[in-house]
Simulated assay, not measured.
Amino acid sequence: MSIAVQDLEAQVLGLPPEDRARLLERLIASFEPRSKAQEAWMQLALRRQEDVRSGKAAMVPGR
């Protein structure tokens, strides 16, 4: 069963903002296959995020 793009668009726009954002991220990612470099950057970002959450590192405000 296929859904018309207009119907799908109406359904998506009716979703809460958090769900629309998650769907948008997945759609954008579907256009860009992951490379080894992208995966390495993602792992680094996740490690840094965990360091901040655990208190091992602190955020520094930008100027």
Rank of each mutant, 00 (worst) to 15 (best):
V52M: 02
R22K: 09
R48A: 04
D7M: 12
A4K: 09
A37N: 08
R34Y: 13
W41I: 12
L27F: 07
K36C: 06
G55A: 03
L24A: 14
L27N: 01
D19A: 08
S30P: 03
L13H: 01
G62I: 02
L15S: 01
R26W: 01
R63L: 07
D51N: 06
L8M: 14
L23W: 00
L23S: 02
G62S: 10
L46G: 06
A29L: 09
V60H: 09
Q43D: 12
A10K: 12
A29E: 08
P33D: 02
P16W: 04
R48D: 05
D7T: 13
A37H: 09
G55S: 09
G62F: 02
M42S: 13
K36S: 13
A40Y: 08
G62E: 02
V52Y: 01
A4S: 12
L23P: 04
A40H: 14
L46T: 15
A29P: 06
V12H: 03
L46H: 11
L27Y: 02
A37T: 08
L23T: 06
D7H: 15
G14V: 06
L24K: 12
R20T: 00
P17Q: 08
L13T: 04
R22M: 02
M42D: 12
L23R: 06
M1L: 10
R26Q: 14
L15I: 00
R47T: 14
R53T: 11
S2Y: 07
P17H: 05
V52W: 01
E9R: 05
A4G: 08
E18D: 07
M42C: 09
A40K: 15
R47C: 06
A40D: 00
A57W: 01
L46V: 12
R22Q: 06
A45C: 07
L24P: 00
M1S: 11
Q43E: 12
E50P: 13
M1Y: 11
S2Q: 15
Q43Y: 10
Q6C: 08
L46D: 14
L44K: 14
S54D: 05
Q38I: 11
D19W: 05
A37R: 09
L13E: 00
P61C: 01
L8Y: 13
P16G: 03
L15K: 00
S35C: 06
A10G: 10
D7W: 09
A37E: 13
D51C: 03
M59I: 15
G55F: 03
P33N: 02
G62D: 00
Q43A: 15
S2I: 13
V60M: 12
P17V: 05
G62A: 10
